[in-house]
Amino acid sequence: MSGIGVLDLQGGVVEHLEHLAALGVPASRVKGAKDLDGLTGLILPGGESTCLTRLLHGCGLDREIAERCHAGLKLWGTCAGAILLAREVVGEVASLGLMDIRIQRNAFGSQLDSFNLTVAVPAVAPEPIPLTFIRAPKILRLGQGVSPLLEIDGYCAAAEDRNSLVTVFHPELTPSLAFHRYFAGKCGIPVPIPRIASAAWQADSWVGYAPIP
């Protein structure tokens, strides 16, 4: 069965699972190398990139993801996930380094500088999309084969190459399904539901995926 995995080591995992479910896309959690079997796409969620880097290395998923990416696995990094994918990270050692971009971690300031924005991303959806930036990074340089999807005030907020997609914001924290639909398309998974916004979504919709025992 083809489907999209969400890297389940730390961070905003269930928020992505909820969005994929709203789209009707088969989704699963990825905690180890064997969980990658049968997937055509993998989402690297928001969280803290240093923590995720340690955990990826600790279980050998870093090498496994790199190998499968070269074999065609599509990757999407949101926020910290985008930092993991960047070949160059300002002031730090790169993590997976699978996309030729230069990125600056936490480039807007503290949590008081986190914000929402609604903008048009023509390649992804016909109407404007709400975007949530939380202690977000900025993409400062795009390398060969990487094209911008969204540029704001002199930095790049979303970009892609043949295999990977990066967004410095969090589509999984908004009602919009547009980026998830776009990524599913990149993974060759048809999305039966034509709508691009989830009418049922609420800020605490994630709780259904994180029940108490």
């Binding site: 905003g12 995992v13 969280g47 803290e48 800020a203």
Partner: peptide, 9 residues
């Protein structure tokens, strides 16, 4: 939502 990003950490 920032706290959500700290989950599992």
């Amino acid at each position: 939502q920032l706290a959500q990003m700290l989950k599992g950490g």
